[in-house]
Design a protein around this nucleic acid. Sequence first.
DNA 1: CGCCCGATGTGCT
DNA 2: GCACATCGGGCGT
Length: 197
Amino acid sequence: MSSKILPRDFYARSVVDVAKDLVGMRLVRIFDSKRISGIILETEAYDGENDLACHARMGKTKRNAVMFGEPGHAYVYFTYGMHWCLNCVTGPQGYPAAVLIRTIQPIEGITFIVKNRPGVKEKDWCNGPAKLTRALSIDGNFNDMDLCDKKNNLLIEKGIQIAQQFIISSSRIGIGSVPEPWRSKAWNFKIAMPENS
DNA sequence: CGCCCGATGTGCT
DNA sequence: GCACATCGGGCGT
């Protein structure tokens, strides 16, 4: 059977296109040879040094160096003193852009997720970038991991097809102090659901 | 449900 | 110093 893992070509495109197309794909975490996975429901694009919401806006630093590297790698950063967030690097090598994974719908490995999210209601397991990394045990050790290599324990596979008309784009979350036009770029993509209409 | 706020560490000014 | 691509608890509606 042919691999379901998204090839590097998928990531080597403009970050907005990749962000849109990642909605519906399947994020897979392998732990002790078991699969924990979920369908990606919401993403956000961060596009290069000119985008003042992007971590690369100050140029290349130790923290954001992975964004300047090969597309298809994970960029995992630490924020607010306690949270990890997962991105995938996009575009040509040397161009710093990445897609933040904001929300997934758990599909496999539910018992693993419950263990990582004790006392949390099911709807809150993975509906935020730092919540899903907690749920799937993703941290700084995954920074720069190649998401296209089946030997790794963090991958993105083909998921479900979402018709374009069911993908909503809106402005990005949590960047309120960023100047225009960047603050209002409609680079947040999610599946249309009753609860967010 | 919404708003407010404290937690808590790192990187850049 | 301070800002930060956040979260969860507390309290009011």
